[in-house]
Amino acid sequence: MAGVTARRARKQRAFRWIVVIVLGLFFLVPLFAMLMFTIREPDGHYTFETWRQFFDWPQLASTYPDLWTGMRSSGELVLLTVALMLVLLVPTVVWVRLRLPWLRRVIEFICLLPLTIPAIVLVVGLAPVYAWVTYFLGGSPMTLTFAYTVLVLPYAYRAIDAGLSGIDVKTLSEAARSLGSSWGTVMWRVVLPNIRSAVLSASFLTVALVLGEFTIASLLNRTNLQVAVELLGKSSATMSVAVSLAALVLAFILLFALSFAGRRRGQNRRSIRETS
């Protein structure tokens, strides 16, 4: 039996490395090509001029003002959307669990609805709504936060719902209420700390979605990071490829770091897996 197991482990290891190497090449070649694209001159020489420019932020901001505004508005959109998502979703989901259980299916259905509505479809319907938003709030890119909150609902809902399923909200909140705490205190000091990892995971999904969003911003004529990069591609191909590569690598490093952080918080693996 031991021999069989060892043989199988060897075979599996061979299979694993073949698959990882072959597919790894498929995935690494374009990234490597991006790097080469940014450092190779037409005459075959190598130069790091693009990267020097990229890391010189004040100069970057003055040379490519659109890129800079795009980066800034994407950064601000991330904060706004995470805040709006949490404020809208967490109290509602908790309240429905405690007081209106018959509404739970409805909320779930609504939250998962955006999965069946592609962003390109949503933007068709949002165009008239945003005519009003522009009328009331102006045409700032920050108004995109409403649309992004809708887009992120399915993922955020699933994360938060999974987190709430892991704790006994009812008992916890009744205990807190019977000791005289207000609903605000229950939410802030009892429920939130208990679903911290779910909130973190929902926030992280939101960050990824907002930073990667292009469709809605582009078609509603608002500038965010992706729109700026796409625009840059038309004028300065090298810099746009450099920004893309940097963004991909940065996102990878973030995710990789988070794969350690998530485990260390002592969450059970299932809830993390279900939500990511």
């Binding site: 374009p30 090509a33 930073l211 292009f214 992706q226 591609g233 990789f256 350690f260």
Partner: peptide, 27 residues
């Protein structure tokens, strides 16, 4: 290995968009 690959998959699956188009233009 698993952490590396799943993180990379997360980035490429959800974050790509415009940037993947540029990656292939460069390739």
């Amino acid at each position: 290995l698993r952490r590396l690959v799943t993180s990379a998959c997360g980035v490429l699956a959800q974050f790509g968009g415009v940037m993947l188009a540029f990656a292939f233009i460069a390739t």
